[in-house]
Amino acid sequence: MKAKTIDRIATGIIYALVSVVVLILLFLLGFILIKGVPHISWKFLTSPAQAFIAGGGIGDQLFNSFYLLILTLLISFPIALGAGIYLSEYAPKNWVTNLVRITIEVLSSLPSVVVGLFGFLLFVVQFKLGFSIISGAIALTFFNLPLLTRSIENSLSAVPDLQREAGLSLGLSKWKTVTRVIFPIALPGIITGIILSAGRVFGEAAALIFTAGQSAPAINYADWNPFNGTSPLNIFRPAETLAVHIWKINTEGIMPDANQVSAGASAVLVIAVLVFNLLARFIGARLYRKITAGK
């Protein structure tokens, strides 16, 4: 009898704890969306931020976030792909490879603020790039590389060896086999990995405050020449992102509507991450079906 009572009590406790976890998430989402969404408007999403008066938007920050994300993916994807291919297809099973794997794991477990500080030291100070989009994109690349590499490696390794043997037995080089046979099959997994990493990169702030900077100088959206200072595409201008903006106005913001702006920006950020997550699931599943089932 006693064991049964304990069983019931324990189950009750577990249910209670789990409910708390679910409630926390519901509260978080509810809070952000209820407080933030009403503040989101076309004007809010497109107009520049204000430092002292109410009514500022997040237009530049939003653009900066996406621009940095795209640059980061452009830099990190090729490197991660090469590294993933090396680890899954070429790396011999020995202590050197082991050490390489440990090193990548170390990089993935470094606090993002440390990665950001390194980027600051190397690019902002040493290479005299100043607070700039390119410094930020490279810092985010360092932050993104280990996870992306691992997800690519896993996707490639999950492809059955039968496919490798098929390629090799036809006299295809290993490289061709990987790039033309294995890679397309692994693509759904790789894309899912990229989108999930995009979500992480999009919300990252600590690695950016000392690399891409905390200011968003006015951008002239009519000027698409990347060599001009106020062009949106200029990679040497400082660029505060959405996530950094939220941090900034909450620590030293003095505009009267700091709270509403933060809520609106947080809602945008969370919705973006949600969309990335859903997209990853949807596109991954769809591509997978397309590649395996033919039509």
Partner: peptide
């Protein structure tokens, strides 16, 4: 997935 600045906010 929720970014850390949102947690901070």
């Amino acid at each position: 997935g929720i970014p850390s600045v949102v947690y901070g906010f």
